[in-house]
C-alpha cells in the first residue's frame, strides 16, 4: 500500500530525514516511536505533502502511485489521512461545514455526487457516537477553544468520517485522559480492516496495549534504526532509548 524508499527530506537546508525505508501492506498497523526531535512529525508532514519540506532523495509510492508528485489535497482524496499532533483552529467555520466540504470534495474526486444534507447529518451522528463526541462540538468553530483532548478526539472523528485507506496518527494519545484514550483506541480498532492500514506515532506503550501493532519501528536522527514486533515497544518502555543509541555507536565505531 505504502512503500517508502531511501527518503531524504529537510527544511530550510537542514536535513531531517536521512534515508527512511518503510513498507506498509493493507491490514497492518505500524507503530513509530523515537525520541523528541527524531523526525516523526516531519515524516508524517512529508507524506501528507506539506510544501515547506523539500525531498532531496528517495521515493514514496501509495497504491502504486507516485505520492510525492501529488498535491496534498489529492493525497487526501487518494485516501491518506493525517491526524495532526497539533490540530489548527479555524474561527467561524463550523466543524460540520468543514467536514461537509471535505467529504464532498473527496466524493467529487471519486466521481460521486455530493451527499444530501439529511444523509450527511445521519452519517455524522453515527460517526460521532463512534468516538462519543459531544454534539455541541460539531456546531462550534473548528477546533476553536477546544481542549487539547477534544481536538485529538475531533481528529479521530474526522478520520471516521473520511474512512481513509492509510491513517497516520501523530501522537493522538498525548493529552487524552484515560477514558478518552480507550475511546479513541476502540475507535481505531473498529475501523481496522483488511483493506486499510495505520501508522501510529507515539511515545507510550500504553496506547499500544489498546491498539496492538504488527510492527514497531524506532526512528532516531531521521532514520529507522530498529524494527520489531509489539515486544520491542515493551522493551523500550522499560529501558528507554539509551541502549539503542549505544548499539548504534558500537556499530558505527
Amino acid at each position: 500500500m505504502l512503500s517508502i524508499e531511501n527518503l531524504h527530506a529537510g527544511i530550510e537546508g537542514k536535513n531531517i530525514l536521512n534515508g527512511i525505508n518503510l513498507n506498509i501492506r493493507p491490514g497492518e498497523v505500524h507503530a513509530i516511536m523515537g525520541p523528541n526531535g527524531a523526525g516523526k512529525s516531519t515524516l508524517s508532514s512529508v507524506l501528507a505533502g506539506k510544501n515547506e519540506y523539500t525531498v532531496s532523495q528517495g521515493s514514496v509510492y501509495f497504491d502504486g502511485k507516485d505520492l510525492l508528485e501529488m498535491s496534498p489535497e489529492d493525497r487526501a482524496r487518494e485516501g491518506l489521512f493525517l491526524a495532526f499532533q497539533y490540530p489548527v483552529e479555524i474561527p467561524g467555520v463550523s466543524n460540520t461545514n468543514f467536514l461537509k466540504t471535505a467529504v464532498n470534495e473527496q466524493r467529487k474526486y471519486r466521481g460521486l455526487p455530493p451527499m444530501e444534507a439529511t444523509d450527511f447529518l445521519k452519517f455524522m451522528r453515527e460517526k460521532m457516537d463512534f468516538v462519543e463526541m459531544d454534539k455541541s462540538l460539531t456546531s462550534r468553530s473548528l477546533n476553536e477553544g477546544f481542549s487539547g483532548g477534544e481536538k485529538k478526539r475531533n481528529e479521530i472523528f474526522q478520520m471516521a468520517m473520511l474512512a481513509p485507506k492509510l491513517a497516520i496518527l501523530d501522537e493522538t494519545d498525548s493529552g487524552l485522559d484515560i477514558d478518552a484514550l480507550r475511546l479513541v483506541s476502540n475507535g481505531v480498532n473498529k475501523l481496522r480492516s483488511k483493506e486499510n492500514a495505520f501508522v501510529v506515532i507515539t511515545h507510550y506503550q500504553r496506547l499500544l496495549d489498546y491498539i496492538v501493532p504488527d510492527f514497531v519501528h524506532v526512528l532516531y536522527k531521521g532514520r529507522i534504526v530498529k524494527s520489531g514486533t509489539a515486544e520491542l515497544a515493551k522493551e523500550l518502555e522499560q529501558k528507554g532509548y539509551d541502549w539503542i543509541k549505544a548499539e548504534l555507536e558500537t556499530q558505527n565505531a
Binding site: 505533502g49 496534498p72 489535497e73 487526501a76 471535505a102 473527496q106
Partner: peptide
C-alpha cells in the same frame, strides 16, 4: 494545509476560511 489534508483544495480552503 489542514484543509488540504482533508481533501479541500487551496482556493476552496481560502473561501471557507
Amino acid at each position: 494545509f489542514y484543509c488540504n489534508q482533508r481533501g479541500i483544495g487551496t482556493e476552496e480552503a481560502i473561501g471557507l476560511i
